[in-house]
């Protein structure tokens, strides 16, 4: 069951990623080219998802948007994962002042509304993917850091860590080779749930008017745009919403599969011990 969930998620994600790469590359339409004669068309053989109110091909735009959303989600997950791992491990292992500083910094990063600094960032760096990733990462690392810190604190006093210190390993070696590999499972699970959150955050930013500059649009921005014409042309909102939903479901399936798999393996280990 768990394995099936994980595999389904992986396959789904792979398919979506392939489409996001291939469709914009081979599509006869451009995502930005407006065509006054083809406004608000219903789906047809030439325009699979129809066209939007500027006459742009929605199918192409959806997959371009998927590419942007994936870039933002995966990119910020990678950066936040690294940052969170580093800060969390330092805070959890050394404790004391380092711990206090990192944790309070995380509190502050959580508490400042992201809109505030993203506005500044877009003005300074332009409204592009990198800016969005940077903006999400400013506060996104805190959750990962808290999680890694908890894991590291739990493992820090365990006997295998003490044994490693007795072989003469330095603190950094202990963190890198002994603590982080053990925290990795939980980290990966939390990152699979982080990716959708990052995509949603970007969506919120584009509602608030500081998202990626038009005509490029992420999936979230497409859904928002489609909402204006929901009553007349529901497809303009529902198609991108459906793709976004598939993307998030794929990630959730992977996460849930890994999570449950963890429990199962622990259970079978217990089984070996008691029987």
């Amino acid at each position: 069951m768990r394995r099936k969930m994980f595999l389904t998620g992986c396959v789904l994600l792979a398919v979506l990623m392939t489409l996001a790469v291939l469709v914009p590359a081979f599509s006869p339409y451009s995502y930005s080219e407006q065509n006054a004669g083809l406004r608000n068309l219903n789906p047809s053989l030439s325009h699979w998802f129809g066209t939007d109110r500027f006459g742009r091909d929605l199918f192409t735009r959806v997959w371009c948007g998927a590419r942007l959303s994936l870039c933002i989600g995966l990119g910020s997950a990678a950066i936040c994962g690294t940052l969170g791992m580093a800060f969390g491990a330092v805070a959890g292992y050394f404790g004391g002042l380092a711990d206090c500083l990192v944790m309070r910094a995380a509190d502050v990063a959580d508490a400042i509304p992201s809109l505030l600094y993203v506005v500044l960032l877009t003005l300074a760096l332009g409204a592009n993917v990198q800016t969005m990733i940077l903006g999400i990462c400013i506060s996104g690392w805190s959750g990962t850091a808290r999680m890694v810190r908890g894991e590291v604190m739990r493992l820090r006093t365990s006997e295998f860590v003490q044994a490693a210190r007795l072989t003469g390993a330095s603190s950094w070696r202990v963190i890198w080779y002994h603590l982080l590999p053990n925290a990795m499972g939980a980290l990966i699970v939390s990152l699979t749930f982080f990716v959708p959150k990052a995509i949603f955050t970007e969506t919120f930013l584009s509602f608030a008017g500081v998202g990626i500059a038009a005509p490029a649009a992420s999936l979230g921005a497409l859904v928002w745009e489609g909402r204006r014409q929901l009553r007349l042309y529901p497809g303009q909102m529902l198609y991108p919403a459906f793709v976004l939903c598939l993307l998030v479901v794929a990630l959730h399936l992977i996460g849930a599969g890994l999570e449950e798999g963890d429990i199962e393996s622990i259970e079978s280990r217990e089984f070996e011990r008691t029987i």
Partner: peptide, 26 residues
């Protein structure tokens, strides 16, 4: 030192060979 709990004193992420190589490397 040899520790009490044999279930907790080996790092579950590494092979036995890796664990044994560590003191040699260091």
């Amino acid at each position: 030192m040899v520790f009490q709990d044999p279930y907790a004193s080996l790092n579950p992420c590494h092979t036995v060979g890796w664990t044994l190589a560590e003191p040699l490397i260091l």
